[in-house]
Simulated assay, not measured.
Amino acid sequence: MPAAVTAQQRADRTARALAAATAAGRDLGLDVGAATVLHDAFSVVVHLSPSPVVVRVPTVLPGGTDVETQAARQRSELDVVAWLAEQGVPVVAPSPLVPREPVRRDGFSMTCWQLVEHDTTAEPDYLDRCRLVADLHLALRSYPGALPFLDAVDLGMITRGLADLAELPELLAPADLERARREWDVLAPLVRSRQEFEAAFPGVGIQPIHGDAPAVNILTTPGGDLFADFELATSGPVEWDLAFLGADAATTYDAAARALGLRTLDDRVLRLVDAIGVLRSVACLALAPQLPMLAEAVAPVLDRWRDGPFAGGFER
């Protein structure tokens, strides 16, 4: 495993991403005078000022991620979001000023989006946003493109992350790692394929989903809330999009779903996706050498996991 990045190395990584986004923007014919970094975590998000274009440059990636796989997922995201925008769904849309394709530059693969004015100080009401997730699911049911079952959510990241954590005992104790592996042995067979999932959960429908907590990935703008960050768009049970949000969120979603004629959430599937969500957080620790803030961010999840039942209490 690589050594943890230093503050200087992270600053250099951000500077390289900023330079790549700036150069790519100019190559695409955009007016780029004073590009600025808006956000820097798993991706460096760059505003190509004065052009109304924002570039997302992924910089912290799971081991084994190749450029072709990354570009394919970015292309899928752009297609899904462009289609949603055409249907009038409130989303942060791809930029119309450049081709709707991932852009490669200096070792990065990046995507271009419309600049939207949003309030970064607004206190999000995640519970109320779950009502909006039902609206999103209704729209996504009609998406005509092909999205493999839970493909883009990268469940392989759990397997790779747990393997990498064997070399990082300072991040995850051996006893914790052993428990995580045993839980994954129980849960993984249920989501390895659509056929296996449907055999375990007959009657639970599969459809296109956001894939990454859509209630969290919403921007508050003067014109209303906009869904964002469809990097993990895939097909799967709608419960996946409600993982980790709790019983009140499920109740809010169910009320909105009933009003729209959609099915309500399945309790067993919710327990499954909650348990997998915890393991994804555990496995995410393997990325802490690239993004040191992760260790602190994941710590509360680990504490709850250690005190909780095996595999979140999920039973086959």
Rank of each mutant, 00 (worst) to 15 (best):
G211T: 06
T159G: 11
Y126L: 15
W83A: 02
H39R: 13
Y143L: 01
V282L: 10
V116H: 05
L132Y: 00
T159N: 11
H210R: 04
L168Y: 10
A11L: 13
L270G: 05
T120V: 13
P52R: 03
A259N: 14
E167C: 06
R280W: 08
D128H: 08
V133G: 03
D154M: 11
L155D: 05
S95A: 12
G224A: 07
A213H: 11
L245S: 12
T6R: 01
W305N: 08
D106R: 10
R263D: 15
V81P: 01
R304K: 13
A311N: 09
D27H: 11
W184A: 02
H137P: 02
R263S: 14
A4Q: 10
D154Y: 10
S235E: 01
E68K: 14
S109M: 03
E296N: 10
H39D: 14
V98I: 10
S235Q: 03
A72F: 05
P289Q: 02
P62A: 08
Q9N: 10
Y253D: 01
G277S: 10
L294G: 00
L187P: 01
E68D: 15
L291M: 12
R129A: 03
Y126E: 11
R160P: 00
G205V: 11
M1V: 15
L279F: 05
A250I: 11
T6V: 01
Q8M: 15
L245W: 13
S49G: 08
D241Q: 04
R73D: 14
R306F: 07
